[in-house]
Amino acid sequence: MSLLESGDHAMERILRDWKYVFFFVAPALILYSALLLVPIFWSMGYSLFDGFPISGFRFMGFGNYLRAWKDQDFLRSFWFSAKYALVVTPGQIGLGFLLSLLYFLVLKRASRLSVLIRTLVFFPVVLPTVAVAQMFVKLFEITPQYGLVNAILDVLGLDGWIRPFLGRGDTAFWVAASMNIWTAMGFYAVLLYSGLLDIPQELIESARLDGASGWNLVRLIITPLLRPLFITSTIFSLNGTLKVFDQILALTGGGPGKSTTPLTLYMYRTAFHYNQYGYGSTIAVILTIECLLVTGILSFFRQKTE
């Protein structure tokens, strides 16, 4: 008994030793503070100024934020990002859900076919984004030769559909959106599939005995049970779609014109092409607030459902 107590005592002493806390935590914390936390506040500071290091800075107060409010390019980028997120996130999760149902209800779980399809559909998730985007550029190319899509339209005699898909803002938007959905749906399929596997088998069996099948089973049993996971997926997905950068840069470069420029790319151009550090940081701050708000609101809903 006394041995145990002294053991506990020694344990307390060792686990509270500041030298060791410092040894384990300090390296990561110092690096993290210097290169991530400090820059966040630094950017917030920049957003109150106009100029860049060589020309010097001029204090603006909230002038940059007022400027964003009236800046056509900013507003266009903001709405592009919003529209993109509102199309791509439901697309990713909706198709991901259908795929997860395919894995769960149609294919035999452990069968080789099932594993193969899951693996195949997931693969684009890990591919370098520039490679995927460049492949899509070639898929939808029109000059100097037809890309695959236009060539197939040509063969099918659908000449009226042949067009420079990436040369027009509206079609470029849809190519960008479908590329992202094509890339990411396998991810959400596996995520939701793992949620489906966690549903107690008896629950589904008894629902089936009660006569629920197919559509009703999905609607009445599966969807409500998966609600927390749907919200988690939505948070994760929106954090990707609102921050989309690589894919768009490599697919359209924001064009034609500025028609497919998301907020992230507009910030990048403002900061690094036009050297407007203050205004660039303002856009970054607005983007950050947007992401935090969306995440915060959805997390609140998730807590309520749990």
């Binding site: 030793d17 500041w18 820059p39």
Partner: peptide
């Protein structure tokens, strides 16, 4: 594993970084 006062604060600091867009730290870096 270790026991100290500010550990939850430090953990929170680390986790906060997950949501920060790259654009927010790009210029200062």
């Amino acid at each position: 594993i270790m026991r100290w006062k500010l550990k939850n604060v430090v953990l929170f600091f680390f986790l906060a970084g997950i949501m920060i867009p790259v654009q927010m730290i790009l210029l200062p870096l």
